[in-house]
Amino acid sequence: MHIRIENQLPIAELSLQYLNHEPVELNHVLIDTGSAATVLDTDCASEAGVMFHVLSGKPAKMYGVGGQSEWVYQQLIHDISFNHVTFPSFTIQLGDIQGQYGFDAILGTDFLKRYGLTLDFGLIS
């Protein structure tokens, strides 16, 4: 995963693949240790084949700095791959973060902790 610092934020580039759909390149993914949940932009999700599942998902609120909240759709997804590493199941939030914040996705602490990922700022150029 290529990570760069942009406006003092760690931004990653990664490939997203869902089931047997074609991979989608996400070039503006925020790695956010202050975010409890991982959020995927709805347009990027749709392009990758991830769709809202009314029966298995539910509306939820995403809270940001200052307590502002926005509605997202939270659901369990199976067989999602980031940079060719497949995760068998993961609960993700889907929301309009590209239009609101300019990110394709936000990798939150739920993702980082579950998969034992660490971020070493000393290695990021």
Score class of each variant (00 low, 15 high):
Thr118Pro: 00
Glu6Trp: 02
Val72Arg: 10
Thr42Arg: 15
His28Ala: 10
Ser35Ile: 09
Gly64Arg: 14
Ile80Val: 14
Val65Gln: 05
Asp41Val: 00
Ile97His: 07
Phe87Ser: 00
Ser69Phe: 08
Tyr101Asn: 05
Val54Met: 14
Cys44Thr: 05
Ser125Asp: 03
Thr118Asn: 05
Ser81Arg: 11
Val39Gln: 00
Ala48Gly: 01
Asp110Arg: 06
Asn83Met: 03
Glu47Cys: 12
Gly116His: 07
Leu40Pro: 07
Val50Asn: 03
Asp96Ser: 06
Phe87Glu: 11
Phe103Ile: 03
Phe103Trp: 08
Leu76Asp: 15
Leu107Met: 13
Thr109Ser: 04
Asn7Pro: 02
Asp43Met: 09
Tyr18Arg: 08
Leu19Tyr: 07
Leu9Tyr: 12
Gln74Pro: 00
Asp110Thr: 07
Ile80Lys: 01
Leu40Ala: 02
His28Phe: 02
Gln74Lys: 13
His78Phe: 08
Gly66Ile: 15
Gly66Thr: 07
Met62Thr: 14
Thr33Leu: 10
Pro59Met: 10
Gly67Arg: 10
Cys44Arg: 04
Ile92Cys: 05
His84Ala: 10
Leu19Val: 03
Leu112Trp: 03
Met1Val: 13
Ser81Val: 02
Ser56Val: 09
Asp41Gln: 05
Gly49Gln: 09
Lys61Gly: 04
Val39Phe: 02
Gly67Lys: 02
Asp32Trp: 09
His21Pro: 04
